[in-house]
Amino acid sequence: MSLLPFPGNRRCTRYPFLIKLAALLGLWSLFNTAIAGEVQHHTFDSPTLGHPYPYTVYLPDGYDAQASTPYPVVYMLHGSFGNERDWVAKGNLAQTADRLIRAGHIPPAVFIMPGSRSWWIDGHNEAARSAFFNDLLPHVESTYRVGDTRALRGVGGLSAGGFGALNFALEKPEMFAAVAALSPASYVPYPPPNSSAHRHPALLDEQGNFDTALWEQRNYPAYLEAYRIKVTPRPSAEESDVPPVPLYISAGRSDVYDAEFHARQLRQAMERIQPNSVRLDLYPGGHTWRVWRASLPAALTFMFQHIGDTPIGQ
């Protein structure tokens, strides 16, 4: 069958414009039917920061603000010197979420992508960690029909956002059902010399020097012992009061910051605490969006094996 019904039932070579137009219309139609969820950009006044807090929200197709059952919500953190639009503009989060929801791999869910000037810590330039917990979460939970319990909440991020997501889950395991850290900038003992951590205002002291003491206080090893005690059953109990937070890790094998090595270190540290709740995937590539886009479907699928256990809108 020919592309267009021209005489002779032969492939048309005399009307290249029509062929190109038909192809473009087909791609346009495919693109518009593929994008089902809605993406919005908002700000709200943050008392902690003293300035507007920006965020991007993905609402799944058919989102119902009056649904009787709240939607699961996942907070996705951007990387160093990034912003709240990165996950949609560069990471294909909306398309990936649409595809996974349509395929039934994850339930309809809300994704919140906040913006931060810090490394998701209370650093030298802003109190990003405090603003996340004290301002962003209450705002989101009062604005959208999302869960406000551990079972319906997850957190993930890439690079510095992976550093932040991991720290949030370790500090407050009672708040998150799963965490994903993509190429996490959770370097031990310190970031490599080429890391942007050495020039990021969140981590520079008044003299402009990298604050090693602050890094040690905010990096994941500082949280491990308190986390272990929280999630490990006491001798007289079969289960702990707070379950471990299942952890997904990914990294590129050619990462210029040696993320594979640090990811393996992180996996070993976490497996000593929760041996059956850690997954590490390695991908060809570096510290790039190509790797993060490739690992996002696996990260979200892993997370939603643990987030949300009730049907939406029932």
Rank of each mutant, 00 (worst) to 15 (best):
M1S: 13
P5Q: 10
G8D: 11
N9R: 15
R10T: 12
T13Y: 14
L18Q: 14
K20F: 12
K20C: 13
A23T: 07
L24W: 09
L27R: 13
W28H: 12
L30R: 14
A34I: 07
I35A: 14
G37K: 08
Q40N: 09
H41K: 11
H42I: 00
S46N: 09
Y58P: 13
G62R: 12
D64N: 15
Q66R: 07
P70W: 02
Y71F: 10
P72N: 09
S80Q: 04
S80D: 01
N92S: 12
T96K: 09
A97F: 04
A97I: 10
L100N: 10
A103T: 02
H105W: 05
H105N: 11
P108R: 15
P108W: 06
V110E: 08
I112P: 03
M113T: 10
S116P: 06
S116G: 11
I121E: 06
G123H: 13
N125W: 01
E126C: 06
E126D: 08
S130M: 09
F132K: 12
F133K: 09
F133V: 14
D135V: 06
L136R: 03
L136W: 02
L136M: 05
H139G: 02
S142I: 04
S142L: 06
D148Y: 06
G154T: 04
G154P: 05
V155M: 09
V155R: 05
G157M: 04
L158C: 02
L158K: 01
G164N: 10
L166Q: 11
A169Q: 14
M175H: 13
M175D: 07
S183E: 08
P184L: 13
P184E: 11
A185Q: 11
V188E: 12
Y190N: 09
P193D: 15
N194M: 14
S195F: 14
S195P: 07
S196A: 15
A197D: 14
L203G: 00
E206P: 00
G208Y: 11
G208E: 09
D211S: 02
T212N: 00
A213T: 12
L214H: 03
W215L: 03
N219E: 08
P221R: 10
P221F: 12
Y223P: 00
E225H: 10
R228V: 01
T232C: 04
T232L: 06
T232G: 01
E238G: 14
I249Y: 00
I249G: 00
A251Y: 08
D255A: 08
Y257E: 11
H262M: 03
A263M: 01
P275W: 05
P275L: 03
N276F: 07
N276T: 08
L280V: 03
H287T: 05
A294T: 11
A294V: 08
S295H: 01
P297M: 02
P297H: 03
A299D: 10
A299R: 13
L300S: 02
T301F: 13
M303G: 10
I307K: 00
I307A: 04
G308I: 01
P311R: 13
P311K: 06
I312N: 05
G313S: 09
Q314I: 04
